[in-house]
Design a binder for these strands. Sequence first.
RNA 1: GCGCCCUUAGCUCAGUUGGAUAGAGCAACUGCCUUCUAAGCAGUGGGUCGGAGGUUCGAAUCCUCCAGGGCGUACCA
Length: 544
Amino acid sequence: MTSKEYIIEQLSSFLEHHKIEGVSVILQKTKDEKFGDYATNLAMQLARHLKKKPVDIAQDIKEAFVLNPSYVSKLEIAGPGFLNFFASTDNLFSQLSDLLTQEKEFGRSVSQKGKRAQIEFVSANPTGPLTIGHGRGAVLGDTVARLLEAIGYEVTREYYFNNAGRQMRVLGESVRLRYLQELGEDISFPDDHYQGEYIRDIARDLIKEFGDSLKDQPESTIFKDRAEASIFAEIKQTIKRLGFSFDVFYNERSLYDQGKIDEVVRELNKKGFIACRDHATWFLTSKLGFDQDRVFVKSTGEPTYRLPDTAYHVEKVKRGFDLIIDVFGADHIATYPDVLAAVKALGYKTEHIKVLIHQFVTLTENGEKVKMSTRKANFITLDELMDDVGVDVTRYFFLMRHMNAHLNFDLALARTQSDENPVFYIQYAHARICSILELATERGYTIEQVARLERLTAPEEQQLIKHLISFPQTVEASALNYEPHRVVTYLFELASLFHKFYTVCRVLSEDKELSVARLHLIKAVKIVIANGLDLLGISAPEHM
RNA sequence: GCGCCCUUAGCUCAGUUGGAUAGAGCAACUGCCUUCUAAGCAGUGGGUCGGAGGUUCGAAUCCUCCAGGGCGUACCA
């Protein structure tokens, strides 16, 4: 049992004893050491319930509190009625010891064991290479998945795509035209076709393989198929490079083939949510409190994206997941409310569907904005970014900000291999530790020796230990709130505490007993940094 | 017009779900390498938490209004 658990248990029993309901115990870490390690505002919360002064209630709680020295060394009343708890150092050391035993497992939990989650992200149609905009969603999605796995979820990573429709026809036609151009024909290339150089590459590959035998092929089918295969292969390669892979590629087409699309319209119609106007089929969102109705099937007979999206979400719900997550960019903000409304109107639960919307990425270089346009050729692909700054930096920068804040990706900063770059700051702490551990082995110290952890009394050591043992709570909170940046912030703080410790406390010294204790401490730091970076999909190098 | 998001130090951003004196990193200035990696550490300066009300013991955090910025508001995805 940890000190924190002990305190909560004691406070809860106080509430129970006084038959107080509707008040929950909030125990938080303190900002300032003079307020101890944990504080609760319970007395102030109870002031109204008990109709007594907070300070008096605090006194009552203090008197009822069983002060067990192996968990709590001191309990003080402060300010308007805070109860400040000082954790016993014995308990700190025993938690540190647990950390060392758990090693790779430290930070992981089984709190959500047995639950299944599905997370859909990237989901770009195969019309071109992944861009930086996709990158943020990709890294965010994968990291949320990793976090959910860390607290016990079984996670399915899913990519939803559509290889039919207008976009893909234009793609095929783009390749066909480039193919003819490459063969020397003088043909103009429309502005609204895909301008990227990758289209020419695909055309050249076709020439390599088929020569000019496709010249009179009037249909762009083969061009489309080749483009799709080629682009998808590239997308998968990019994702692999980012450090993960998808479990399911879900083709929108299968929803049509299985009649799921028609079924949605039919069922909604039965419930009176469908109307035909101007030769189009409308979903009557206005009946559900929205300001306007939405078209589900165009007058051309083609469905809008909302219809298959609804069918897809129905399928996801039917697959029985405990948690369904969609990761979208801010430009899709308008798409999900009516889709969820449709799913709900069909009688399915939607409470367990979480939509994570991330804001855009702005690339800057030395303060200047780097302009990008997907249609034109001047966008920077995710691969080019990784070529430029590396995978670790790419992932870190995409994760370091809250997802609903705009991300300013400073290329110049990302490129610097120096102290200015926060990724290296964290990795450097890990590398430094590895280096000391190697040296320790050379000098005959062994980590296996029994450590007298109680020798770790310096303030820098105590702070480090306290931060280390709070890692599991950070992971849990980060996962349950779908906020990967919390782990990033945590690791940066940990690295900072370590670097401070490093300059003040010499690990390998004449004092063997202290040296061994400190070796255990830095081993613990190494474990947590490695585990944390692993959650983010970032490497923990042993040398830099 | 309407919807969602954002506004915290000169710049880029954290802020433990409502707590005690609001914190980092850059940038500026000043120190610290014959000692385990200086990709590091220590120090100085820098704030009306966009503005105004409200809720309460207590607000950067919750509610309302206003201002500024981003993204949407298609029979595009």
